[in-house]
């Protein structure tokens, strides 16, 4: 069945390095943008950055 066009196919040897980079990137971004800690240390340190990147804050 030919459902995937050439433009969307990824060489299998390139899958894992790219996928790992995406997982790491999402972890970093979402961790910084979304984590709330009990003492608000992380929130307060990231406060201005979160506001300025339009992450939901407070």
């Amino acid at each position: 069945m030919k459902t995937i066009s050439a433009s969307t196919a990824i060489a299998s040897s390139k899958f894992l390095p790219g996928f790992s980079a995406i997982v790491l990137g999402l972890t970093v971004v979402l961790g910084l943008g979304f984590l709330q800690d009990a003492n608000n240390y992380l929130h307060n340190a990231a406060h201005d950055g979160r506001h300025s990147a339009a992450f939901p804050c407070h």
């Binding site: 790491l24 971004v29 340190a45 201005d48």
Partner: peptide, 15 residues
């Protein structure tokens, strides 16, 4: 914060 989010976003672009 900006450097690290920049790193994370750049990973998505580069990948």
């Amino acid at each position: 914060f900006n450097g690290l989010t920049g790193f994370g976003f750049a990973l998505l672009i580069s990948a």
